[in-house]
């Protein structure tokens, strides 16, 4: 059996990669994907702890996270595609008509 700390460590690594990805990458699609990776890292940690506690609650949480992530992807891709239709190019630095 894989030790709990390894799984949580993997989750933390995935979370860090996702967070760095959102902050460093310029393409909204990749940024969105990186954000989803942070969600999945959290789901993994929930499942790992639920298994070590022999409790179901964390597993339910993981299912809710997966379901919500699916809804978010549906909405997110629609918004990204509609922005792409306006510009025919995807770069977050070019999507900056609003002074930010």
């Amino acid at each position: 059996m894989i030790p709990l700390n390894w799984v949580v460590g993997l989750g933390a690594a995935l979370f860090a990669i996702g967070a760095v990805g959102v902050m460093v990458r310029k393409n909204p699609l990749i940024m969105f994907m990186a954000a989803e990776m942070m969600w999945n890292a959290a789901a993994l940690v929930f499942v790992a702890y639920a298994r070590s506690f022999h409790a179901m609650s964390g597993q339910v949480m993981a299912f809710i996270i997966i379901g919500t992530a699916a809804a978010e992807v549906g909405i997110g891709l629609a918004i990204i595609v509609s922005v792409f239709h306006h510009r025919h190019r995807l770069d977050i630095d070019e999507v900056s008509q609003l002074r930010g």
Partner: peptide, 21 residues
């Protein structure tokens, strides 16, 4: 409006990720 939606989406997903972890 599209730009606002995109920014809100990306930052919202990012902050939800932090919250979840």
């Amino acid at each position: 409006s599209g730009e606002a939606g995109l920014k809100y989406l990306l930052l919202g997903a990012f902050s939800s990720g932090i919250l979840l972890f």
